[in-house]
């Protein structure tokens, strides 16, 4: 464990807590893409298959449980909670996210480190996570006024993977034979997808104006 990875995990945890805070306290999911939340639940479900088979550390197991429980409960909240579901804008959240699942799965079948079920599911979860934010970014461009919590949620979600990139660089230089191209490239693609969001988020913070993404 290094400081970049710990910072990354804490940033990721913060993004989930911000989202749960928004949904649970103000009982609203306005501006939040259910599709991205469903993709993230699938990412964690396919990535943490080794939750009960490979014990790495208490921290690792605890965090996996937190991410699994929180992502599935967020999907449940938006779909079934009688008040929250009313604020879900399904006419705007129209990204066909199923079109992301199949290509990621096919790619995982072709490009992976080992052709085993667990490895392919793990690789699938990496590719899927790289593109999971797309429905949310599209929704942000459609919803004119982005509220602070939603903006902070997306920012933290993008920031966590950038910190992971620093972690991979650190591990590359400190651990012999630490090379994982699949992880690195999908993590880089994921972070690059946030590039323009980061730009507008920073501009709104610098000029102290409301965050708006150009259509």
């Amino acid at each position: 464990m290094n400081i970049f990875r710990l910072a990354g995990d804490m940033t990721h945890l913060a993004s989930v807590l911000v989202l749960l805070l928004k949904i649970h306290t103000i009982k609203s999911c306005a501006g939040i893409s259910l599709k991205t939340q469903e993709l993230y639940a699938l990412v964690f479900a396919t990535r943490y298959l080794d939750l009960f088979t490979d014990y790495i550390s208490l921290y690792n197991t605890l965090m996996k449980l937190i991410f699994l429980v929180s992502s599935f409960s967020i999907v449940w909240y938006i779909r079934h909670h009688k008040i929250v579901r009313r604020s879900y804008d399904k006419d705007q959240d129209t990204f066909r996210h199923y079109f992301l699942v199949l290509p990621c799965f096919l790619l995982a079948l072709v490009i992976n480190e080992k052709f085993t079920v667990k490895e392919i599911m793990w690789t699938f979860s990496l590719y899927l996570e790289a593109v999971a934010i797309l429905p949310q970014l599209v929704l942000l461009q459609r919803t004119r006024n982005i509220d602070n919590l939603t903006g902070q949620y997306v920012f933290l979600l993008g920031a966590y993977r950038s910190l992971y990139i620093l972690n991979w660089i650190y591990r590359y230089f400190t651990e012999p034979h630490y090379v994982h191209w699949i992880t690195w490239i999908s993590g880089l693609v994921q972070t690059l997808l946030y590039a323009d969001f980061f730009y507008y988020y920073f501009q709104s913070w610098k000029n102290n104006v409301k965050l708006e993404l150009p259509a």
Partner: peptide, 10 residues
Amino acid sequence: SQEPSTKDEL
């Protein structure tokens, strides 16, 4: 063999 793979990451 507990080789330090990325699998120890979240």
